[in-house]
Measured scan of single mutants.
Amino acid sequence: HDVTIHAGDKTIHVHGASEEFLRIIEQAKRDGIHEEELLRLIEELVK
């Protein structure tokens, strides 16, 4: 999957995102996670 995530003034493109990655991001959004926290989460996941 190619994913584009908008968080605040940043746009992150993730190529080859796994289903698990997508679920984590969707869950985080539903939980109302702060955008900066979401960015950190994404950066950890894509290392």
Results as ranks from 00 to 15, higher is better:
1 H>Y: 15
1 H>S: 11
1 H>E: 08
1 H>T: 14
1 H>I: 15
1 H>M: 14
1 H>K: 13
1 H>N: 12
1 H>R: 13
1 H>V: 15
2 D>L: 13
2 D>S: 13
3 V>A: 05
3 V>F: 12
3 V>D: 03
3 V>Q: 03
3 V>Y: 07
4 T>K: 05
4 T>I: 15
5 I>T: 01
5 I>S: 02
5 I>N: 02
5 I>E: 02
5 I>L: 06
5 I>K: 01
5 I>P: 02
5 I>V: 08
7 A>T: 10
7 A>R: 02
7 A>C: 09
7 A>H: 09
7 A>F: 15
8 G>V: 04
8 G>Y: 03
8 G>W: 03
8 G>R: 00
8 G>C: 04
8 G>Q: 04
8 G>L: 02
8 G>M: 02
8 G>F: 04
9 D>F: 03
9 D>R: 03
9 D>M: 06
10 K>C: 02
10 K>Y: 10
10 K>H: 10
10 K>G: 05
10 K>S: 08
10 K>V: 12
10 K>Q: 09
10 K>M: 12
11 T>V: 14
11 T>S: 08
11 T>D: 07
11 T>L: 13
11 T>G: 05
11 T>P: 04
12 I>C: 03
12 I>Y: 09
12 I>D: 01
12 I>W: 09
13 H>M: 09
13 H>Q: 09
13 H>V: 15
14 V>S: 01
14 V>D: 01
14 V>R: 01
14 V>K: 01
15 H>Y: 05
15 H>P: 07
15 H>E: 07
15 H>S: 11
15 H>A: 10
16 G>S: 07
16 G>M: 07
16 G>A: 08
16 G>H: 10
17 A>H: 04
17 A>F: 13
17 A>R: 01
17 A>N: 03
18 S>D: 09
18 S>C: 02
18 S>L: 06
18 S>W: 08
18 S>P: 07
19 E>W: 12
19 E>P: 12
19 E>A: 13
19 E>R: 10
20 E>D: 12
20 E>Q: 09
20 E>K: 04
20 E>P: 01
21 F>C: 03
21 F>Y: 03
21 F>I: 11
22 L>G: 02
22 L>S: 04
22 L>P: 00
22 L>W: 13
22 L>M: 13
23 R>D: 05
23 R>A: 11
23 R>E: 07
23 R>G: 04
23 R>Y: 07
23 R>I: 07
23 R>T: 06
23 R>F: 09
24 I>D: 01
24 I>S: 05
24 I>M: 11
24 I>K: 09
25 I>V: 11
25 I>W: 09
25 I>T: 01
25 I>P: 00
26 E>T: 08
26 E>L: 14
27 Q>R: 11
27 Q>I: 08
27 Q>A: 12
27 Q>G: 04
27 Q>C: 04
27 Q>H: 05
28 A>K: 04
28 A>P: 00
28 A>R: 04
28 A>N: 01
29 K>N: 07
29 K>R: 14
29 K>G: 06
29 K>H: 10
30 R>T: 09
30 R>W: 11
30 R>K: 08
30 R>D: 04
30 R>Q: 11
30 R>G: 04
31 D>V: 06
31 D>P: 01
31 D>K: 06
31 D>A: 13
31 D>R: 06
31 D>C: 08
31 D>N: 12
31 D>G: 08
32 G>W: 02
32 G>L: 05
32 G>P: 01
32 G>Y: 04
32 G>Q: 05
32 G>K: 05
32 G>I: 02
32 G>D: 05
33 I>S: 03
33 I>G: 02
33 I>N: 02
33 I>Q: 04
33 I>D: 01
33 I>H: 04
34 H>K: 14
34 H>L: 14
34 H>V: 13
35 E>F: 14
35 E>Q: 12
35 E>T: 14
36 E>C: 13
36 E>A: 14
36 E>V: 13
37 E>K: 08
37 E>L: 12
37 E>D: 13
37 E>V: 11
38 L>G: 00
38 L>A: 00
38 L>E: 00
38 L>C: 01
39 L>H: 03
39 L>K: 04
39 L>N: 03
39 L>Q: 05
40 R>N: 06
40 R>S: 07
40 R>L: 10
40 R>F: 07
40 R>W: 08
41 L>H: 01
41 L>G: 00
41 L>I: 07
41 L>M: 10
42 I>K: 00
42 I>Y: 04
42 I>G: 00
42 I>E: 00
42 I>R: 00
43 E>T: 11
44 E>V: 06
44 E>S: 13
44 E>K: 10
44 E>H: 11
45 L>S: 02
45 L>K: 01
45 L>G: 02
45 L>V: 05
45 L>M: 13
46 V>G: 07
46 V>W: 11
46 V>R: 07
46 V>H: 06
46 V>K: 05
46 V>E: 05
46 V>N: 06
47 K>F: 13
47 K>I: 12
47 K>C: 14
47 K>A: 13
47 K>N: 13
